[in-house]
Structures are given as C-alpha cells and as structure tokens.
C-alpha cells in the first residue's frame, strides 16, 4: 500500500501475443517544473484543508469529498495534458482535478458554499462542477458514470479528429461497476483515445479493496478487453507524470485505451461525514509519515538545492490564494430566487 509494489516481470508473466506499453520511466523534471508541481499540490492540500474547515463551520453542506493525500495523481497526470485540447472527467472527488487543470480556486470554493459566483452558479455543489472552456467535464455524482461518459468524450475526440485524449478518473470502488467494463469494451473495440485512471486509494467509502474486489490488482482489469494496464506509485508525482507520458504516447499513437492504476491513499474520511472507523489511526499516520506526496517533492527539491526557506514565499502565496478564495466564497451572494427556474432547459418551447 502506497509503497508502490511496481509490476515485476517475475510475478506477472505477460501474455506475449500482443504489444504492451513500455514500463514507464520516472519523469525527470526541471527545477521549475518540480516547483510548479509542488505549488499545485500544495494548493490542492491547503484548498482542501480550508474546505474541510468551512464545512465544519457549516458554510459548505451536503457531501464534500476531499482529495488530501492524492494530490500527486491529478497534478502528475494532468501536467502532461494540454488544457483546452485534452479532456478530463472524474467522479465526485473532483476539487483536486479542477485545481490541477488551472481552474480558478475562487469559483470552485464559491460553488462549495453554494453561491451565485460559483462555477455552477451554486446549483451543482462539490460533486457537480464543470468547465467546458478547460475541457473539464465534471464532477459526476454517480459512481462509475464518468467512465462511460469519458468514453463518449474520447469518441468525440476521435470523431472530430481534434487530436485530444480523454483522461477519465475513477476510484477502486467504481472499478467494480458494470458500466466500466461496457466502456472498456467499446473503447478498445473502437480504439478510443482514452486513459482510464483508477485512483486506488484503498477504500471504497469504508470497504477496503480486497474486501470488494476479487482481483485487487486493478491494473489487470482491462486484460479481458485487451486493454493494457500499468500500476503506478500514485504518491510520487514524478512517477505519475512518467506514467502519463507513456500512456499518452500509447493513446496518441492510435493504439486505443490504456489503464493506469494509481496506488494512492486518502488521509481524510470518504466524505466529511465519515469518521473513518474502518482503519486505524496508525495506518493513516504511517502513510503520512512515510509516503506523503508533498513531502516527497520537497525532498526532491532539496536535492536540487531548494531550501525550506526558499519555499516559504511560495507557501505564503498559496495560503493567500486559498484565504482569498475562502473570503470570496463566504461573502459572495447566494443565487437569486429566480435562478431556481433557469437552465432546466437550454431552449424555450
């Protein structure tokens, strides 16, 4: 868990009758790139911490699923994508993916507080946020729905010949949904340009992977569809980026879909209302101590001569951005009552 037992040739003899992607290489980031990863991951961490705080204060309601612990996945993978060309779709734990795609923290936070200035005008909430401008297509509350929808986005890329790739995220829980396999089948059949990203954070709400999955090595789940899979250390942003490069090369070459299983961990409960009694405090603490993705980048930066003091201004800047987003979200007005009836339909009949 979180230690990324990378796939080994000995334990996993591969079927030789078809082409396989190469074992991804850990990405060699420049100092600037690494700093940028650090900044984005820290933004997600601080943003989510603030969201948790606002939830506690009653400013955010309903379900609020935090991305703390999983930051390296969205940041590492999406850094390899082209915003506005490649599309991204995910489930309800979506704040991190939006921030990693450069969407303004203010409008995300204002959506969480249900304000008119929110990205969905306050009508979607935490689980239903979209930015078609960025080609970020949600934010979907039904577990697994985003996988078939993502195949549809990939279908569009292929149909339009726009060169784009869809990155469709789902969790280890969604990986057991039937429609995921319906989507796998069509995606491979039609060679759709899609990267299926399984964010295996070890728990589907309160059920651990091995209590819910007969095959808990989720990267193998595409085998019957001839979709290759790669298991990736999702706590290492450079491993994530490296895997994205390999996956993109595969998909952009027209070889069809690929699966990335990102071994990761969520520190918080499934949602804000989950006390997480299904795992020990020690387990969580141990991951935080040994595998925290942000601390790992910090260590990488140290190797390049970036000191704690060098990072201070950056951290302060992020605190400021998050603080401003929270102020904005608290003070922005709620939607006007007539908004209740708008946008049910696009046209008037």
């Amino acid at each position: 868990m979180a230690k990324s037992p990378a796939r080994t040739a000995q334990s996993d003899p591969q079927i030789p009758n078809r082409e396989r992607p190469a074992e991804p290489q850990r990405y060699e980031a420049s100092k600037e790139e690494l700093l940028d990863f650090y900044k984005q991951m820290l933004l997600i961490r601080r943003f989510e911490e603030k969201a948790g705080q606002l939830y506690g204060l009653g400013l955010i309601g309903g379900f609020c699923h935090l991305y703390i612990g999983q930051e390296a996945v969205a940041v590492g993978l999406q850094s390899a994508l082209e915003v506005g060309k490649d599309s991204v779709i995910t489930g309800y734990r979506d704040h991190g993916h939006m921030l990693a795609y450069g969407i303004d923290p203010k409008v995300i936070m204002a959506e969480l507080t249900g304000r008119a200035a929110g990205i969905s005008k306050g009508k979607g909430g935490s689980m239903h946020m979209f930015s078609t401008e960025h080609r970020f297509y949600g934010g979907h509350g039904i577990v697994g729905a985003q996988v078939s929808l993502g195949a549809g986005l990939a279908f569009k890329h292929k149909y339009a010949g726009d060169g784009g790739v869809c990155m469709a995220y789902f969790g280890d829980g969604a990986a057991n949904q039937g429609q995921v396999y319906e989507a796998f089948n069509m995606a491979e059949l039609w060679k759709l340009p899609i990267i299926f990203v399984i964010e295996n954070n070890q728990y589907a709400m309160g059920t651990s992977v091995n209590r819910a999955s007969s095959e808990d090595q989720l990267y193998k789940r595409g085998e019957s569809f001839r979709i290759p899979g790669i298991q990736v250390d999702g706590m290492d942003v450079l491993a994530c980026r490296g895997a994205a490069e390999e996956a993109l090369a595969w998909v952009r070459a027209g070889k069809g879909p690929i699966i990335l299983e990102m071994k990761t961990y969520r520190y918080r409960g499934h949602s804000m209302s989950d006390p997480a009694k299904y795992r020990s405090r020690d387990e969580v603490q141990s991951v935080r101590d040994k595998s925290d993705p942000i601390e790992a980048v910090k260590r990488e930066l140290e190797k390049l001569g970036v000191t704690e003091a060098d990072l201070k201004p950056l951290e302060q800047e992020i605190r400021k951005v998050v603080g401003e987003a929270a102020d904005f979200a608290e003070n922005a007005p709620e939607p006007e009552a007539p908004e209740l009836y708008t946008e049910v339909l696009v046209e008037t009949y």
């Binding site: 729905a145 078939s148 986005l153 990939a154 279908f155 319906e182």
Partner: peptide, 21 residues
C-alpha cells in the same frame, strides 16, 4: 453498431454530446 450494452452506449452517447456532438 454497438455491442449489447445499453448502459455503456447511452453513457458514450451522452459523453459525446457533452463534448459537442
């Protein structure tokens, strides 16, 4: 032609519509 997979292809169609088709 799709496989017999209503949930899946309804999702693929819906996603394609979201994407602009």
């Amino acid at each position: 032609d799709t496989p017999i997979t209503e949930y899946g292809f309804a999702g693929v169609g819906t996603g394609a519509a979201m994407g602009g088709l």
